[in-house]
Write a protein that binds this DNA or RNA. Structure first.
Lengths: 210, 210, 210, 210
DNA sequence: AATGAATGAGATTTCATTCAT
DNA sequence: CATGAATGAAATCTCATTCAT
C-alpha cells in the first residue's frame, strides 16, 4: 500500500498519558484500513506505519495478522450492534425506530458486509476466529430480529418471517449506499434515501405503508 | 492452495481436436477459482495447476494476473447478462419473467457481487481494467432496467424509479442466497424462495401483489 | 523491452524475392538491438518482433541467443575491419589515413567496445564463441597495427611500441565520442574533433606534430 | 552464480560488535560482484549468498536491485574520488601527482567505466538513480579537472582544453589495463606502464616531456 | 513495553528453448 | 521454411513472523 517511512526516536518513548492506549490505537487503525482496503490489501506494516508504531509492536499486542483482523472486525460489529440497540430501545413506533437505524447506517461511511469480511480472509482465519466473527454478526441480526419479534408480540405489526425480514432490511440498506457510475447516489439526501427504502420495505412486508 | 502436478512434454502438444482450447480452459478455471476464493487468495500457480498447465502457459495467454481476472469476471458477467436477456425476451407478463430470472439466479452457485470483485483487486487493476468490469456490470443492470422501463411504457406496470427498482431487486436476490449459521437456507426450495422474494419486491414497488 | 504485437497472416508467406534473406535480416536487426541496448537487455523475442518474424524463426536460423549475439557482433566487427582496411590501403601519408579512419569512427553511431560486448554476455557465451569474438577483435587491431608497422618499415615514422600505439589510438577515438552532461560533445564538428585527437596522438607518439 | 547456503537463525542476531554492519557488508559484496560481472549477470540472490545473508535481508536494507546497484557504484566512485583528491593535494609538480594517480589506478583491480555501468542497467534505473550516478562520475572528473586548471592558473603548465585533457587522461589509463590475448599486459610493471602512459599524455598535451 | 534486524516461504513475471505441425 | 503453443528455470520482490535486546 502506502510508502511513508517516518523515523521515530530510539528507546522507550515517554508515556503520553492523555493518548489512547497503544493497543486501542492499533486496533482502530487496523479497522479503518481493513474496512477501506480489505484484508489481503493491508499488510501488518501498513497498520504499524499508520498507527505510528513498528511492526514488532503490533505483534506484541496481537498474535497474528488474522487475530488482529478478527479483533478489529468484531469490535467494529460490536459498536454497530450497540448503536442499533440504542436506537431500537427508544419508545417509538417500530417504523420510526427503523427509520433512525436506516439513517444511521446510510450516514456511516462503512457499509458492513460480513460475507465480504470473511471471504477475503477465510484462507487465513482459524475456525475459532471465523466462529467469533459469525457470532458478532449474529448479534447484529438478533438486535433487529428482536425488534421485529417484539413488535409482533405486542401486536404492533402482523406476523412475519423474521429472519427474512431482517435480511431483506439489511440488503435494502446496502442499496441505499449504491453509487452510480458517475459517483452520485440514487437519492439527493440520506433522509430521502432512508424514506424510500423504508417505504419500500414496509410495503413489501405488509402491502401498505401505514 | 492445492498441488496436483502432472508433467507434460515441452513444446507444442499433439492436437487433441476434441478438447476445448487452452485459453478457454484457463479462463473457466480462473473464473471458478476467483469467484470461490477471491482475487488475492488465488495465485496464478493455482489457476495453472487446476487447469493442468504451467504458470508460463497462463502467461502465454494472459498478460498479467489482473488481466486474467478481468477477463474471467467480464466473461462471467457477459454470460449472466445473456441468460437474463434470454429469459426477459419471452412473451410473458413481467412478473413471470422476473420469477424465471430470480429462479435462475438462486440456482446458480455464484452470487455475483461486482463491488466485491472490484474491491478485492483494486490495488492491482488498471483504470482500463476497472472500466471494462464496470461496463460489463452496467450491461447486466441495463438488461433488467430495460425490462422495467419497457413494462412501464407498455402500461403493464405503473411508473417507478427504475434504477432503485433494479438495485433493490438484485439485493433481494442475494437475500435468497443467505445461509443461516447451520448452513440451511431461509426457504425449503428455490421455488419457494423465489416466490417469497418476488412477492415482497412486487408489493414493495406497487403496494399489492397482482 | 518493447511491446508491439502485430499479427501476421497464417501459413507460409510468399517469398518476396527482392527482400534480403531472412537470416540476414535477423542478423542485422539483432546487431542493432544488441549494440544499442546490450546483450542482456535484448530478448530473443525483441529481435524477432523487430525483424517481423517469430521467435521460432530466429531459432530456426540460429542455435541459441548467444550464437546469434556472437554472429551479430563478429559480422559487425568484420565490417569495421574492412572499412578500416579500405581507408588504410590508400596511397597517402599515415597521418592522413589515420585522420580518415578517425573521422569514419567518430561519425559512426556505434562506438565499438569489445570489452563491453564480452562483459555483458560472458556468463552465456561458450569458450569457442568468446574465442571467435576475440579473433574478430584482434583482426581490427591488426589492421591498424599493420599500418603502423608498415610505416616504420618504410621509414615514414620512427620506431614505436605498436600495440600501445594502437590501443592508445583507439582509446582516444572513444574520447571523441564523449558527451558532456548536457549531451553536447567536446568539439563542434567531427572534423575538429578528429583533428584535435590526432594532433594529440601524434605529439604523444613523436613529441611533435609533423 | 555460486551457491553457498549457510543457515542462520530467525530474528535479531546476537550482537557481534566487532563485525562491520550488515548493510555495509552487503554494499561491499554487491560492489565487487557488480563490477566483476555486470548488473544483469548478478542476481540479488547472488549478492545475498555472497554476503552470507538472505535475499530478504538485502531488501530490508535496499529498496530494489537498482537502488542497491546505484548505491554500490556511487560509493565506489566516491572512494575513488577521495583517493584521487588525497593524491592530488600533495605539494608536488603536477606531473608527479598525476603519476601517483595513474599508478594507483593501474594497481586497482577495477577499471571504472561509468558509461558501461549505466549501459548495463539503464532499463532498470530511474532517472533519479541515473542522475545520482552521473553526479558521482562528474565529481571524479572535477577532481582531475581542478588539478589541471589549478596548474594552469599557477603557471605551472600552459593553457589547455581541460575537459579533453581529463577524458584523454582517463582513456589512456584504461589502455594501461589492456590485456593481450595471452593475458599479459603491455608492460612488465605497473610503474613502467604508468611512466609510458604519462609520457605519452604529457607530450600529447605539450609536445615535449619536461 | 517496544523495537530493529532478520528470515522462510511464496507471489508475480520473464525468457531461452523445444517441438509437432 | 516457419510458426504457435508450451514449458522449466530463474529473477525480482513482498510479507507474516520471530527474537535478542
Amino acid at each position: 500500500m502506502m510508502k511513508k517511512k517516518q523515523h521515530r526516536p530510539l528507546g522507550r518513548p515517554k508515556v503520553k498519558s492523555n493518548d489512547i492506549p497503544r493497543n486501542q490505537l492499533i486496533l482502530q487503525t487496523a479497522a479503518r484500513l481493513f474496512i477501506d482496503n480489505g484484508y489481503q490489501n493491508v499488510s501488518v506494516d501498513d497498520v504499524a506505519l499508520n498507527a505510528g508504531v513498528t511492526k514488532a509492536t503490533v505483534y506484541y499486542y496481537f498474535d497474528s495478522k488474522s487475530e488482529l483482523y478478527k479483533e478489529a472486525i468484531v469490535s467494529l460489529m460490536n459498536r454497530i450492534k450497540e448503536r442499533i440497540d440504542r436506537l431500537m430501545e427508544v419508545n417509538k413506533p417500530l417504523y420510526e425506530r427503523l427509520y433512525d437505524v436506516t439513517l444511521a447506517h446510510l450516514e456511516a461511511t462503512t457499509s458492513i458486509d460480513i460475507e465480504q469480511f470473511l471471504r477475503e480472509s477465510k484462507t487465513d482465519l482459524s475456525n475459532e476466529q471465523i466462529q467469533e466473527m459469525k457470532e458478532a454478526e449474529k448479534k447484529i441480526y438478533e438486535s433487529i430480529e428482536y425488534a421485529f419479534s417484539d413488535a409482533v408480540t405486542k401486536g404492533e405489526i402482523s406476523s412475519i418471517n423474521i429472519t427474512f425480514a431482517t435480511q431483506a432490511y439489511l440488503a435494502l440498506i446496502k442499496v441505499g449506499n449504491y453509487k452510480q457510475q458517475d459517483g452520485s447516489g440514487l437519492f439527493s439526501t440520506a433522509e430521502k434515501s432512508a424514506e424510500t427504502i423504508l417505504t419500500f420495505f414496509w410495503k413489501g412486508l405488509f402491502g401498505t405503508n401505514d
